[in-house]
Amino acid sequence: MLDLWLDYKDLWLSGLKVTASLTLLAILLGFVLALPIGVARARNRGLSGVLAYGYVNFFRGMPLLVLLFLVYYGAGEFSRDLRSLGLWWFFRDAYYCGLLALVLNTAAYQAEIIRGSLNGIPSSIREANAALNLTRWTAFRRVLFPIAIARALPGLGNEFILLLKATSLLAIITIFDLMGQARFIFSETFDLRAYYVAALHYLVLVLVLEWFLRRIESRNAWAA
């Protein structure tokens, strides 16, 4: 299998880079989007609650593959309008389209994980905040948020690993990620080992991600 890797070393490495960068960006941007949605879900009041509920269920209800086709080929249908709006540079690029679909999808799941951990904080802690006369913002920033994140980490880690593997779907919209390269190398060689090589790369990426998550978890451990 090493020969197959060495023969196409540049392709494998560039695929690895694309998969890793897509995963990392989708995790970070997805988290940024998920945080306010998760908080709104936990609060579950007013317009923000309704919107967050709608967002989560809309995107959890749609298979990522369908979302990907809608974002990529759907945007293609409106290329004229997108051009006149000056947004075509973004939607023309398969990488950006794929990233957008990943972010929209993962944000919905991450938001639910954050909601769960916020709701799971014992009411005694909220009472302590009130007793200390903390403002709502300070209480959230200094107490509730750190606890919620610590509790959310195992669930988030799980989602990040799923997300990493979900990036392989992006190969079908012409992105040369690991899976895209594997498909290409397979079509060149008709050698099924190309997919084993791809699988090993994913395994390595998952192990690296898992190692990072473990480190972050142990730093943020919360005895509650």
């Binding site: 080929y73 293609g76 051009r83 398969a94």
Partner: peptide, 11 residues
């Protein structure tokens, strides 16, 4: 067919 779609959209 997907390549044709991307021709039509100008990608």
């Amino acid at each position: 067919g997907e390549a044709f779609l991307d021709m039509e959209s100008g990608r």
